[in-house]
């Protein structure tokens, strides 16, 4: 059984690595802060890239359901929750 925090920490590292966010240390990303527009200010290509990286790393499948994606991508906490429930690896 993984510690519940690990996926959050891993996702923060994925975000920083995948999106090459310079000057940001993964732990500095707030678990509950919005990722897009406000917060880290990521744009739609960033969201797509993050989706591709999450799919590769965890074997999850991210569809084009707008309401669901809005929830999934709202924060690191929600991303982690989604991964926990849907991961295939």
């Amino acid at each position: 059984m993984e510690a519940p925090d690990t996926i959050e920490a891993d996702i923060k590292t994925l975000i920083v690595d995948a999106l090459a966010l310079e000057d940001i240390e993964p732990p500095a990303i707030e678990t509950d802060a919005p990722l897009f527009v406000e917060g880290l200010g990521l744009d739609s290509i960033d969201a797509l890239e993050l989706a591709v990286v999450l799919e590769e790393n965890y074997g999850v499948k991210i569809d084009d359901d707008p309401e669901r994606n809005q929830v999934i991508f709202a924060s690191v906490r929600n991303l982690a929750e989604f991964v926990r429930q849907n991961r295939a690896k």
Binding site: L48, P66, N69
Partner: peptide, 11 residues
């Protein structure tokens, strides 16, 4: 205004 277009294209 949203990231949705990108996900729709991906799908």
């Amino acid at each position: 205004t949203t990231a949705q277009t990108g996900f729709a294209i991906k799908a």
